[in-house]
Computed example of a mutant assay.
Amino acid sequence: MKKLFDNFEEFVGGSLFIGMFIVLVMQIFSRQFLNQPLVWSEELAKLIFIYVGLFGVTACIKDNSHVAIDFFVQKLPPAFQKGIHVFNQVLILATLVTIFIISIRITGRQAPIDIVSLRISYIYMYIALPIFSLLMIFRQIHRNVKEFSIWRKTKSGVM
């Protein structure tokens, strides 16, 4: 169960990526060999792509593997580096909370509009943002709590 929890984003995001690949291969085959393009495939691939991308962002938050330009920060004393790191984490968390609040309003406005080729509401596309911003907030807090406990152990000499 812990392994599923730790690798949730990679597992589901990878599965969705394979699904998106299959949809796009079907579209290419249908268009090139059958001369009958699938009208729904482009919209479905776009919908899946949004979810795959957001799963990737969440996985990077979990692993702290986003690209960072820390050339100048590395030149500072360790106490300043920790301070800047904490400031950045708080700023990221505040941004994610803001995105969540704004995305709720945006998602609510999309309910009556349909994706014509899929015959579903645009809400399925826009609901990804509040859901994933919550998941990102959770992963951000979870990672920061782990980092803080490591810092405390290191400071007290236990580690």
Rank of each mutant, 00 (worst) to 15 (best):
H85Y: 13
Q81S: 05
L47V: 12
K75W: 03
A79M: 05
I92D: 01
Q81Y: 07
A45M: 10
F71L: 13
T58G: 00
T58R: 00
K46E: 13
L44C: 13
V39M: 13
G83Q: 07
P77N: 12
A79I: 11
G53H: 02
G56D: 06
F80G: 00
S41A: 15
F72H: 05
Q36P: 00
P37V: 08
V57G: 04
L44H: 02
F55L: 04
F49E: 02
L47T: 14
Y51A: 04
E43Q: 12
N88W: 02
V39A: 12
V67C: 09
H85F: 14
I69P: 00
Q89R: 14
F55Y: 15
I102P: 00
N35E: 11
T58P: 00
K62F: 06
V90H: 09
N35W: 06
I48F: 10
I61Q: 03
S65M: 07
I69W: 03
H66F: 15
G53P: 07
P77Y: 02
D63Q: 13
P37C: 10
G53A: 10
N88T: 13
V73G: 03
Q89K: 15
K82E: 08
T95K: 03
I99P: 08
D63V: 00
V73C: 03
F72A: 12
F49A: 14
I99Y: 08
N88I: 09
Q81I: 09
Y51C: 01
V67M: 10
V97M: 06
H66I: 01
I48N: 02
G53K: 06
H66Y: 08
Q36G: 04
F49P: 01
H66E: 04
I48A: 07
I102G: 01
K75G: 01
I101Q: 08
I102H: 06
Q89P: 00
I101R: 06
K75S: 09
K46M: 11
A79R: 11
L96A: 05
K75Y: 06
L96E: 10
Q36L: 15
K62T: 08
F72C: 05
